[in-house]
Amino acid sequence: MDVVLNGQELVNVSGEPITPRGSALLVLGCPQVPVQTSIALYLINRLRKSGIVTVVAGNKSANTLLLIADPDRHYLGEVMDLDRAVGLISDKKRDFDRCFVFIHNDAGVTYAATMGVISKAKLFTLIYGEHYDDLVKQVDFPCTIIAAKAVHNPLPLKKAIDEVTPWAA
C-alpha cells in the first residue's frame, strides 16, 4: 500500500484519502527513560505507513516530548491525556484494534494489565530500561511481549519491534 503521512490523514501517493486498515493506541509511560520518545515516533511511522491510524495517550510530559519533537505533526496524529483515554475505553466510548503499552517500571505493568481488561485491542507490551528482564517476569496476562535492554540507545528495542512486525499482525 502506498501511504503518505499527511498530518492526521492517511492518503495515497495521489493525495486521496485511504480507508485505514485499523487503529492503534500507544500508551506512554513516564518519559524518564530516553528511548520512549524515539521508539514512539518510530512505531507511529511504521504503523501509519501500514495504513493504521495511531493515537497517543500519555501524561503531560510524555505527550509534550512528542509534540515538541514533531511540531508539524508529520508523524503524530491524535494525542490525548492518559487518564482521559482510560476513561473513554472503560466507558466503552472508544476502543482500538491494537494497543502498545510502554513499560519501564511497575506502573507500566499496571497500565498494561488495565488495558488488557478494559480494551478489546490486541495488546503489545514494549518493555525496556535497565531492569527490563525483571519487568518481563511480572507480565502474567495475555499479550505479545517485545523486550530489550534499552535505556539511551533505542536500537535494541527497535530491532525487537522489527522482529515482531506488529503493524502486520
Partner: peptide, 27 residues
C-alpha cells in the same frame, strides 16, 4: 477509573475508602 492488575482490592473502614492510585512516573 482505577488502574491495576486484576483483581483490584478496595478497603473499607467505616466511612473511609482505601484504594490504589497509579501514576506513570510515581508508581
Amino acid at each position: 477509573h482505577l488502574i491495576g492488575i486484576p483483581p483490584i482490592a478496595i478497603g473499607l473502614d467505616a466511612d473511609f475508602i482505601v484504594f490504589p492510585y497509579t501514576k506513570p512516573c510515581h508508581g
